[in-house]
Every structure is written in C-alpha cells, then in structure tokens.
Amino acid sequence: MLRITSLNLNGIRSAYNKGLLDWLKINQADILCLQELKAHLADIHDDLQHPLDYNGHFCTAEKKGYSGVGIYLRQQPERILRGMACEEFDSEGRILRADWKDISVISAYLPSGSSGPERQEAKFRFLEKFGPWLQNLMDDHKNSGREYVICADWNIAHKEIDLKNWKSNQKNSGFTPEERAWMTHVIDEIGFVDVFRQLDPRPEQYTWWSNRGQAWAKNVGWRLDYQLTTPGIAAKARATSIYKDQRFSDHAPLTIDYDVTLR
C-alpha cells in the first residue's frame, strides 16, 4: 500500500515548532507533499530537509518567506522536475514533480487571490497556464500508461459541499464561478479524479479554516486540498482521512492510501 499525504504547512519552520515531526512518525506516509514552505533552501536546516528516513526535495520561491513546495520521499525517484516552464510562476516555487518508473507524484501550490484584485488576476493567469499543463499530463497518461497524482492546495473549493458558507462566498476568491468552472473542466473534461470525493461523499469535510473568529472550533471550513489523479491509480485508492487531532497549520493533512507499488 502506498500512502500519500498532502499538507500546506503555512511555514515549514512553524509547522515543526507545532509538532509536525512527532506526527510524521505516526502517519508513516511513503510520500509527503508539502506546500507553502515560506523559506529559502538555505533556511531549511538539514533536520527539516531529511527528517526520519525521508529525503526532502524542494522548489522554493525567489521572494523571501513566500510560497514554495516540497516532497518528502522514502524511495528515491528516477528524477525530480521543477516548474511548468512559465517564468512568472516558476519563480514563485509552485510545482515539484517526482518520477518513478510508471508513477509521477506532484506537489503544487496554486496562487491565492484573496489579498486583492491584482492577485486574483494573477491566479487566473496561473489557471490559464496550468490547465493545458494538466491536459499534457493526461495525454501522456493515455499514451504511455503513466499514472499521475497531483497533491495540491488548489485554493479553490469546487462545489457547494466543499465549504461551509457557500452562499455568502460566491463572489470571493476560491469560490468564484470562474474558478469552480475551471475545476469542473479539469475533472469532467480533462479527466482527473477527485479521489477524496470518490471515497468520501460526506459533507463538512474540510482541510482549511480561517484564523478569524472560531472557524476551527465551529468547523466553518473549506476543502481546498485535493489529490487529483489519473483514472488508473484512482481506481486503486482504498482509504482516505483528514487529520484534525493536532494543528500544524491553518490546513489539515490529507492522506490517501493506494494499492500500488513504486518501482
């Protein structure tokens, strides 16, 4: 069984200070995809780069204390790739890919548009680039049989079930009609599978909670963290969970177990 976990850290050093290492020992993921490192590589000390029996690979942003993605791996891949050949967003450290013989796992951090109209426009530019990039992955899957797992903070809640207060958020970044339509295109037309929803159709299953008010205590959240995969490996997903017993970040870890073996 291959266990893959995705987690937006909201700062790698902050998450470790809140007990991430102890949870890593318990969770026992084979692959842990990380988003929002908020650190340059020089600031990620060796014990954070290679905790326990993991080897860490990272793609950090040029801007200090901003964005950045990583992957902790127990089994070394054949290669590591960074970015999507887009200068504007590759400089922000948003995509990191690990390849094995017939499986690729990607950690991605999509932009947030919540800080204002300028960043929302940047988010739309990212989606315009990222959609065709995802289509290329699906085309490769169909041609070669390679399976893809994309672990990401998508910064989009896809459907009404995916956030608590959907009626009052329809004009807010993360739940605009345009963003939701883009997610629908990725799932219904390109053909990626939202594996969590395949396994767990229940409402009120969220992965992010605002730090304002009592959002966490009242479970007023959003489901922003998804594992979207090609259909072959989606069919081999066996179990999923969102870990909420501890908080390392304003996001919760999303774990999915797949009945496959890395080669």
Rank of each mutant, 00 (worst) to 15 (best):
K38M: 04
K244Q: 13
G116M: 06
T261Y: 04
L52Y: 04
F130A: 06
T229R: 07
L134G: 12
A108N: 05
L81Q: 04
F89C: 14
N8W: 13
G145C: 11
E204Y: 06
I190T: 10
R202S: 14
L73W: 08
S104R: 05
Q76Y: 01
Q120V: 04
P177R: 05
D30I: 08
R202N: 07
F126L: 07
D90Y: 09
W100H: 08
T60Y: 00
V186S: 07
H45Q: 15
R82W: 01
A85P: 00
E147G: 00
C33P: 01
T176H: 09
G232W: 01
W216I: 14
Q35D: 01
S144W: 01
H50I: 13
L199W: 06
A217Q: 12
E92Q: 15
S144C: 03
T176A: 05
D140F: 04
G116P: 08
P177C: 00
I12F: 10
Y72K: 06
R247D: 00
Q198S: 12
L163G: 06
S107Y: 11
E179R: 06
D99F: 02
M138A: 01
L24N: 13
N10A: 12
S104A: 14
I233G: 04
E88I: 09
G131P: 00
E147H: 05
Q170P: 00
R125H: 13
T229E: 03
N169G: 00
G56K: 10
R202Q: 14
T229K: 05
G70M: 03
D46S: 13
L32S: 01
A217H: 02
N169H: 09
R79K: 14
D245H: 09
K129L: 13
D53S: 09
N55M: 12
Q227W: 10
T261E: 14
I12G: 13
L24Q: 12
A239Q: 15
G174L: 10
K64S: 14
R247A: 09
D257M: 11
D53K: 04
P77M: 02
S6A: 12
R13T: 14
I4P: 01
K101D: 07
Q246F: 15
V195S: 08
L2E: 10
G56H: 08
K38T: 04
Y206I: 11
P132L: 08
C151V: 00
S210W: 13
F58P: 06
Y16D: 08
F196W: 07
S249M: 14
R79C: 08
E147V: 00
L96M: 04
W222S: 03
I156T: 05
Q35W: 02
S112N: 14
S173W: 11
L7R: 06
R74E: 03
N8C: 11
D102G: 00
